[in-house]
Simulated scan of single mutants.
Amino acid sequence: ANMEFYLSQVTRAQEEERKRVAREIHDESIQSLATLALGIDAIARGKEKLSEDVLRRLKGLRAETDSILDGLRCFSHKLRPGVIDQVGLVAALEILTEELNKENSVKTSLEVAGSERRLTPETELALFRIAQEALHNVKKHSRATEAKIRLKFIRSKVKLTASDNGRGFELPDTLSDFATEGKLGLIGIQERTRLLGGKLLVRSWAGRGTTVVVEVADIQGMKG
């Protein structure tokens, strides 16, 4: 019981810290770089006659600034996907899968079934983190070429499934054994599922991929 309490407190503290860092990146670093980019543009378009060499260097600096801005925005989104608060889980998952596809590492798709609706903020964030961690595991460990996220809305519950066609692995006797085997990502998924009062199922076959299924109650759906 003490370990479960500790894990839940750590998980909540991680989210608060991620939120704080993401806000600082947006309010300070990103805003400062955006101002710098505008300054470079102003110099390039100014009345002073600049040589072609200087203009070329300014263009290079602007491109480098844009690249850093894109990287920071991507990092900030991974820390705290603000789009969840604004337009919901599905839109955030669409962005997540699009980002993976841009990296050209694993072909990733998203399927949404049932009557799409907003969930509680805690549920949406936890399900996003579960999908994020599952796809990170696919990219880092599975040697898969394809991955799929499926979000199914049912009247009183929501089911999130993450599957891949990777090399798979041998499942331990209990999910708690993932920690001793170094599969900390799955421990994180297990803990987030537990905090939601949900059910977790992990299936894996050697050479045939892995499937992670999380099912949680939808309190708002029950009321509808």
Rank of each mutant, 00 (worst) to 15 (best):
M3G: 12
R62N: 11
M3A: 15
A206M: 13
R143I: 13
D218P: 02
K78G: 15
L195R: 09
K199G: 10
D53C: 07
L72G: 02
F178D: 01
L119T: 02
G221E: 04
A22R: 01
A42L: 11
I40F: 06
L55E: 06
F169I: 03
L93Y: 04
E215N: 02
T35D: 14
G182M: 02
V213T: 15
S204P: 02
A134K: 00
K102E: 15
K102A: 14
S115I: 12
T161L: 06
N104W: 15
G114M: 05
K199F: 10
G182D: 05
T180F: 14
A13W: 05
L151F: 01
I84M: 04
E103Q: 12
T211E: 13
Q9G: 09
D177I: 02
T174W: 08
K157H: 07
R80Y: 15
D66Q: 09
I25R: 01
E15M: 07
Q86A: 14
E170G: 03
L175K: 13
I154M: 14
T174H: 05
F153Y: 04
P121Q: 05
D66L: 07
G46S: 07
S67M: 08
C74P: 11
T193A: 03
S29K: 11
A113K: 10
K183F: 12
V10C: 07
T193E: 04
W205T: 15
V106A: 01
Q14W: 12
N2T: 13
N165C: 06
V158E: 01
T35A: 14
R80D: 15
G88Q: 02
A1I: 14
R20M: 10
D177A: 06
E103G: 11
R143K: 12
Q220H: 10
G207N: 04
A131H: 01
I95K: 11
G82A: 12
L58E: 07
V112D: 04
Q9F: 11
S76K: 04
R129C: 11
I84L: 11
L135H: 02
Q220V: 15
S115C: 10
R56F: 13
R12H: 10
A63M: 13
L171P: 00
G39K: 04
E111G: 10
K152N: 11
E116G: 02
A44R: 02
R57W: 14
S176E: 15
T161W: 04
V158H: 00
I40S: 03
V54F: 08
G209P: 01
L186M: 03
T161E: 10
E124G: 00
R62T: 14
R18H: 12
L151P: 01
L7E: 09
V138W: 02
L151G: 04
V216S: 01
E181S: 12
G82D: 09
A44M: 03
S8E: 07
H136P: 09
V10A: 06
A126E: 06
G166K: 00
G168T: 06
F75Q: 11
K140C: 11
K183T: 10
G221S: 01
